[in-house]
């Protein structure tokens, strides 16, 4: 290859590279400016765990220990006693070690009453690890602050402005496509 050809090759390659990079200049930047604009996470996103109470403030959890048995990282500790009036159990202690949790949502899959749910609060960084050893009050507080949460049994639930708990519209649900497509099929037939 002659020197001239080599020079031409180099110039051409640099030109192609520059043109490719230059094309991006006019594209919209994907930067999301995090601390000023909070990202809008999908409702099934697993960022933290919470323990939901019913609308009237009573406990949804029936303390069946299913989540404790299903947890792969073994971070859930539950102690319970029999309810003296009526049946069922009451919580003595419900701890989730959010430090060692692997956020796989196996506990949420196992929960038969959709009490333990996944929420989208990812801003959990801390100077002190002890703040992440969640007890039952901490988990309730997480649920009270959350606007939406997900559990496989009830799907995505949202908290309305007047404090009621409602099922989210099908556009937010995993598998909501079936519900969205159904009316169209009925109209067709």
């Amino acid at each position: 290859m002659s020197l001239l050809q080599e020079v031409w090759q180099a110039v051409k390659a640099i030109g192609t590279g520059m043109a490719t990079v230059h094309k991006r200049v006019y594209e919209e930047a994907p930067t999301e400016f995090y601390p000023y604009v909070k990202p809008d996470l999908p409702p099934v996103s697993v960022q933290s765990l919470a323990l939901v109470e019913n609308e009237d403030g009573s406990e949804r959890c029936i303390v069946c220990l299913q989540c404790e048995r299903a947890c792969p990282a073994q971070v859930i500790t539950i102690e319970r006693h029999r309810n003296p009036e009526g049946k069922g159990f009451l919580i003595d202690r419900f701890d989730i070690d959010l430090v060692n949790c692997m956020y796989c949502a196996a506990c949420v899959e196992a929960c038969p009453v959709s009490s333990i749910v996944t929420i989208q609060d990812f801003e959990m960084s801390t100077y002190d690890l002890q703040t992440l050893k969640a007890d039952v009050d901490f988990l309730h507080e997480q649920a009270r602050r959350a606007r939406q949460w997900y559990s496989p049994k009830f799907g995505v639930e949202v908290r309305t402005e007047d404090g009621r708990i409602e099922k989210a519209p099908p556009e937010m649900q995993p598998g909501g496509l079936a519900e969205i497509l159904k009316p169209a099929e009925e109209v067709d037939s």
């Binding site: 099934v44 099908p170 496509l177």
Partner: peptide, 17 residues
């Protein structure tokens, strides 16, 4: 990154619309 999505017999939940 690490979604724990497959399970025995299929996947854990239906896809988003």
């Amino acid at each position: 990154m690490l979604p724990n999505y497959y399970t025995f017999g299929g996947v854990r939940r239906d896809v988003h619309p």
